[in-house]
């Protein structure tokens, strides 16, 4: 064994280490990418869910619906002008 073979062995070890590393991180990248895709998708779904809920809410609080519920179910009505009194402190 001279110093030539020594260096060859060292380089071979480094090369193998680098290659293994490369494969490992390549795989890691794929996994992270898959995860990021899943999150992107989830974000999109949550966004559309949010918009849908907002729509649903705005239908529920629509002024004409509230007016109808107040009038028909709760028997409420706007006070007549004569009934309005102002509290003075």
């Amino acid at each position: 064994m001279n110093w030539h073979s020594g260096i060859t062995v060292v380089l071979a070890v480094i090369l193998i280490a680098v290659l293994v590393n490369y494969v490992f991180f390549q795989n890691e990248t794929r996994k992270l990418f898959a995860a990021s895709q899943a999150i992107e998708k989830e974000k999109l779904e949550l966004n559309s869910e949010f918009a849908r809920l907002q729509l649903e809410k705005s239908t529920l609080v629509a002024n004409n619906r509230i007016e109808q519920v107040a009038r028909d179910q709760l028997n409420m009505k706007l006070p007549e002008d004569e009934q309005v009194l102002v509290i003075v402190r």
């Binding site: 966004n47 559309s48 918009a51 907002q54």
Partner: peptide
Amino acid sequence: VSRGSIYDRNGEPLALSTAM
């Protein structure tokens, strides 16, 4: 990308984009 929403002065939605 979605188009911006339009809200009234109290934050009630007037125009919304939903993903389809």
